[in-house]
Design a protein around this nucleic acid. Structure first.
Lengths: 221, 221
DNA sequence: CGCGCTCTTGACTAGGGTCAAGTGCAGTGG
DNA sequence: CCACTGCACTTGACCCTAGTCAAGAGCGCG
């Protein structure tokens, strides 16, 4: 834990509350200690696209740390515990602790790799592929931080939030989930994802999770 | 130009050649001095999703600089001139020149901001909106580096490449372009994009390009 | 008990994909 | 100079995935 000096005190945020709002240009980043959160971008017509979904160990808001326009909101999906990363004297820290700089750069890069994968999903995969990919990825990440097993994981996401992340309507997502359930591939019910036939899911959807590294950002830092 | 010491000699790459291939795990980044390039991810079924399109002044491959799995390819769209950024002794450089670390982090963040915008397009906008958004963004970026005016810019991209970037088929892109042409909004012909009614385009598609900063990455570094 | 969630399902519609054919070059070779 | 090939672009006809509209079910909560 190289980054101790950057971290502020624990902060608790209730489920549903916004940690960061689109318009505010106070740039703060957080380490997510427990719970789930998501970040999204709103469109003027009231729609929103969810950018990514984070769980314990992930960094929140690094993306817009250095940018003038922090145009994303971050919302707690469950009750959440975070620690603020003070960014005021980032250049001081970089000077005195170059390894922190490296770790931060690495964290941002990994974040971006996931974004790219998400982009490919939205661009080239159909609704079922996207859904399976997303759920398997979340499962793999949950497993890495000890929140899941190869058989499944607890997933506190509503269908409409998942749909907003996948770029499809909640209604269509529901249909897709039904098909997956009826084909005995996976079940998503009561906030619990169960992979019935994981092998088949992976080969059917040609998944590759090499971009998920075994280290979490928090461990690195 | 803080980053002089990181830059290698000029390299010239012909149009169509790959600078970086998906599988190679030699992680190199480049500054694009002149010409256009794009990076993409291939799927096993032969499809590809284009991640982003770069022009002079942009950084190529920073995304995967620190990652084990550099799973994207980078291809020259035109004849291209690049300078390699040596990444071997990145941590040495960070130690002796903290400002470089800051600049790199900033560059990656900006890269990611564009990715997010692209993600939103694929998730929530229809084909026409995506197309207009992409072309206006490319135009704005071209203008920043002196390659275009508010009236238009030279855009050496084939329709099929643009389509792969927008997540639609070339055929449908063609239809969309026809509509835009017939509505006297913009024309894309012979590698030249002309905005006929820029004001209308922007308001029609509710565009906001705040995330495009006036500084190019190369200038920063 | 009733309100407001999320989830579910059906019927219909439309945006965009697929298939297929054709045009207009630039390059090459006879 | 004129086929011949290949590539980027066009366009039309048809079809399917996913969106829209509408209604209902199950459930936690004041």
């Amino acid at each position: 834990m190289v980054l101790q000096r950057l971290q502020g005190p624990r902060i608790f945020v209730e489920s549903g509350k916004e940690l960061v709002h689109e318009d505010q240009n106070q740039h703060s980043a957080y380490v997510l200690c427990s719970g789930w959160a998501y970040s999204y971008k709103g469109l003027r017509d009231g729609q929103r696209q969810i950018i990514d979904i984070q769980m314990a160990g992930d960094l929140l808001g690094i993306r817009s740390l250095l940018l003038k326009t922090s145009d994303q909101s971050i919302v707690a999906l469950t009750d959440v515990e975070v620690r603020k990363i003070s960014t005021e004297r980032l250049s001081d820290v970089f000077r005195s602790a170059p390894r922190v700089a490296l770790a931060l750069l690495w964290a941002v890069s990994k974040d971006e790799a996931m974004l790219v994968e998400h982009l490919v999903s939205l661009g080239k995969r159909d609704a079922a592929m996207r859904t399976v990919h997303m759920l398997l990825e979340l499962g793999a990440r949950a497993e890495i931080v000890g929140l899941g097993t190869p058989e499944g994981f607890s997933c506190p996401i509503s269908q409409s939030i998942l749909a907003d992340s996948l770029g499809i309507t909640p209604i269509h997502l529901n249909r897709v989930l039904r098909q997956l359930r009826e084909s005995k591939l996976l079940v998503f019910k009561d906030g619990l994802v169960t992979f019935i036939d994981r092998r088949k899911l992976i080969e059917l959807f040609e998944m590759d999770f090499a971009y998920l590294n075994q280290n979490t950002a928090a461990e690195r830092l």
